[in-house]
Design a binder for these strands. Sequence first.
DNA 1: TTGCAATAATTGTATATACAACATTTTCAG
DNA 2: CTGAAAATGTTGTATATACAATTATTGCAA
Lengths: 150, 150
Amino acid sequence: MKLEDELKMPKFRSPYQKASLNLMFTGEWMMARVDSLLKPYDISSQQFNVLRILRGQQGKPLNLFTIQERMLNRMSNATRLVEKLRLKGLVTRELCEQNRRKVEIAITDKGMDLLDNLDPLMKQLEEETFKNLSAEEAQHLSDTLDRVRA
Amino acid sequence: MKLEDELKMPKFRSPYQKASLNLMFTGEWMMARVDSLLKPYDISSQQFNVLRILRGQQGKPLNLFTIQERMLNRMSNATRLVEKLRLKGLVTRELCEQNRRKVEIAITDKGMDLLDNLDPLMKQLEEETFKNLSAEEAQHLSDTLDRVRA
DNA sequence: TTGCAATAATTGTATATACAACATTTTCAG
DNA sequence: CTGAAAATGTTGTATATACAATTATTGCAA
């Protein structure tokens, strides 16, 4: 739906104001869809994202600082988020012997299994979300967003 | 920056997965910019958004239900959010006599003054944010986001 | 070597969010 | 009219977020 109808705003000051609101609104909308999909599995989109980051490491652990750098929302608290994943048995946590300031986090088999189960669901959600956009249009959207953040 | 560098993800499963992550990431990024601008004025982007909704009413009040409908994030709690604005003297709150289920909220002069002060700053932020996009490109971005949510 | 700065993580705390449960008032079918 | 359902808000609670303060460890310059 057009943003002016969605927010019942008859007019915007400029295309930039509209794009700005639309970015925030659509970002929240997308996040809510992902959270809703993940809810039955009892993890949040942030937690899912961290698991996915760890899976990308092929078994190699990452320290908390690096995880934080790669999170969608950098302000959230990696220590506490990872601790929740650990309590669910989805990651392990080990002090690094070489540099004892660091804590190394790795995904467990249980975590991998969960991701494997979720992959097709996420794929389906993404396809459903972008059903009105061709692959080229989706790529162009990403390129535009990259330019905004440039 | 390109999302793969931003999140240090070497590859994405599809342009749809990438667009999906990019939407969430860029939405958070934008929201953080707005919050950072508003911080010295001691209001959140959600609170600012509610004030802006009320200003659009030209003095006519809105009830909480309608405010909630127009918020960027519908899940947040309009009752408590508006109460915070009231404590700061930015809105008034009155029980509706015609329909006593309703509570009518209106912006105060102090609230209007705050918005008037913030307007040029927000405008500047939007222009800075979209400095790499022409007005046409910003409009096209909005249209694409509208189609995603269609 | 010493101690200051940098790095990495944890903790504290206030606020915000998600969402369910509840309360009150109004509407409307029978 | 009456009682069930709908509309509107409020409250409770668990979790998440923002951000500052603190701790512990390491690196490095004087």
